[in-house]
Design a binder for these strands. Structure first.
Lengths: 222, 222
DNA sequence: TATTCAATACCCCAAACGGGGTAAACTAAG
DNA sequence: CTTAGTTTACCCCGTTTGGGGTATTGAATA
């Protein structure tokens, strides 16, 4: 069975290296490769709308121009919870590992893993596993056992490149306020609130308040 | 300054004891006393709609007929985050204490506290404090330091006396589905989905999907 | 048996929401 | 000085949601 995957990687040479490596494995088909989280999410939306193939697995870099791979994962999982995400990155700090898993990634590998390991990890992921090295597994256990690092920050920072005003409006909406009520509280026109929300939806790649609330809570914008 | 409070207590003799005790303190005015969480929430909604006085502080029992005081607190905080809640109960298990605090209660006293302590705790609560006995404070620290008891159950059980079908529909809505999509997935009419949601809203005392999503996540109906 | 409850489905209607525009005023950065 | 970004505000449109009903069926229970 051929597994369709997508890459999110901004470094062109690494991108080429991945594509070359995967070309030797016929069980893997790379559908597309995006250089940023935003472009990746747009590509997914477009394919979804046009009825084109979607990947079963996404190999996601963390450090990217624009939104992080962690936020991109959060947004992807909101609209496509069935697509599996494996982080492939140079970072191995507890913080980013835990944030990735909380965002919905199921695997976590380092960039220097040999191609065979990455390919077999993709298979493991589809089989329902959670591929990662022993070293990373140990850090995850540590992360779970240190509650101070879990509390008060469900994920990382605000993220998604939102402006102050946008965050302010999100907080009110998440707390159950309508556009009209939010407008009254901030003493601006309801049209303005709507404009802000439209921009927020574009930035976060969501299409409803329910999804906004879910992601906002996960990211701790409570 | 007179502080307006409300009581939620089903035991009639305890109810009378509280009312009698508070009558000796002119800084406390008991607006009303409800024998169940549902009746309390309805009373709050009615007063809010009619422009009548709302309490600044609610003394909440946990064990109640119908929904628990913890769920009543969760629902109250969703619509009125400024109303302070102090649990007054016979329970002192870590589980219920933590659940109460997660639901939004700021104080936690035992029913055998002398009236002066309760009255001064109300003042402390309004001043921004978190009144509780040393014994309970110690249990809270323990609760925070035991992550196994935090994970996978943000609060207690489903709660709110929801039926299986209602829970099923809530899960879909919280995951971003519209009424129509939910109806298609469950192979029922969108009218039926709406009927269920109307019933859920009544049970949970919310009036929007955003609030539903928030409470559902807090209670782990994810 | 009678009654209650869960689940189903429809009616009506007004308000809220989501997405597509355009555009002005102001600030900050190049 | 020009460009980019933020905040403000309006237009259009169709869809979704929330709240008020009523009503039938089947299962469980008093």
């Amino acid at each position: 069975m051929v597994t369709k995957i997508a890459l999110v990687e901004d470094n062109p040479s690494l991108q080429r290296r991945f594509l070359l490596n995967f070309s030797f494995f016929e069980e893997i088909e790379v559908l597309f490769c995006s250089p940023s989280g935003e472009q990746f999410l747009s590509e997914i939306e477009e394919r979804n709308d046009n009825g084109h193939d979607l990947p079963s697995v996404v190999l996601m870099d963390i450090e990217l121009p624009g939104i992080t791979g962690i936020d991109a994962t959060l947004a992807l999982k909101e609209s496509h919870p069935d697509i599996e995400v494996m982080m492939i990155t140079v970072f191995e700090d507890e913080e980013r590992i835990m944030d990735s898993l909380r965002s919905g990634a199921s695997g976590y590998l380092l960039k220097d893993e040999p191609p065979e390991v990455i390919v077999s990890s993709v298979a493991e992921l589809i089989a329902g596993g959670a591929p990662m090295t022993a070293k990373i597994a140990r850090k995850i256990i540590a992360g779970i056992q240190s509650p101070e690092k879990n509390r008060d920050k469900p994920s990382s920072k605000p993220g998604f490149d939102l402006s102050e005003r946008e965050l302010e409006i999100i907080k009110l909406l998440v707390n159950g306020k309508s556009y009209t009520q939010t407008a009254e509280i901030l003493i601006i026109s309801p049209h303005t609130v709507k404009t802000h929300i439209k921009n927020v939806y574009k930035k976060m790649h969501v299409h409803s308040k329910a999804s906004l609330v879910k992601i906002a809570i996960k990211k701790g914008i409570i």
